[in-house]
Computed example of a mutant assay.
Amino acid sequence: MCEIMQNLQEEGRAEGRLEGRLEERTSLALDMLRDKKPIEEIIKYSRLTPERIKELAKQIR
C-alpha cells in the first residue's frame, strides 16, 4: 500500500512540474506577442504550437 501511495505522489509531482513549465511557456509567449515578436521566434523560444500561439494572440487583442 505504501508503494502505491508513493507512486501516486511521484506522479502528482511530475504532473505539477509539467503544468508549471507549460505556464512559463505560455507567459513567455504572451509577453512576446505583446512585444509584437514574429511568430517563428515565439515558437522557437516558447516551444508552443503555432495553433496555441494563435489562440493566445486572440486573448490579448
Rank of each mutant, 00 (worst) to 15 (best):
E3L: 13
M1E: 08
A29F: 09
A29W: 07
R17M: 04
E11W: 07
M32E: 13
R13F: 02
T49E: 08
I43D: 00
L33V: 10
M32A: 10
R47P: 01
A14D: 06
L28E: 05
E55D: 15
I43P: 00
R61C: 05
I39W: 06
Q59S: 10
I4S: 05
K44Y: 02
R47S: 11
P50Y: 03
L48Y: 01
D31Q: 14
G12A: 10
E55K: 13
C2I: 14
M5N: 11
Q59K: 14
E55V: 06
P38F: 07
E40D: 15
R13W: 00
K58R: 15
L8R: 13
L48C: 03
K37N: 07
R61D: 10
M1N: 11
L8E: 14
R17L: 08
Q59M: 08
I53Q: 02
E55T: 10
D35T: 06
L48F: 03
E40M: 03
M5D: 12
K44W: 01
G16V: 04
P50H: 06
R52D: 03
C2S: 12
E23Q: 14
A29N: 04
R25S: 15
A14V: 03
T49I: 00
L48R: 01
Q59H: 05
A29Q: 05
E3V: 12
L28V: 05
K44P: 00
L8K: 11
I39M: 14
E11A: 15
I43Y: 00
D35G: 04
N7M: 11
L28Q: 10
K37P: 00
E11D: 06
R34E: 14
E51F: 11
G16W: 08
Q9D: 08
K36H: 14
E10G: 00
E19R: 14
S27Y: 08
K54C: 00
D31T: 12
L8C: 04
D31G: 15
G20K: 07
G12V: 06
L22C: 02
R13G: 00
G12L: 14
R61N: 11
G16A: 08
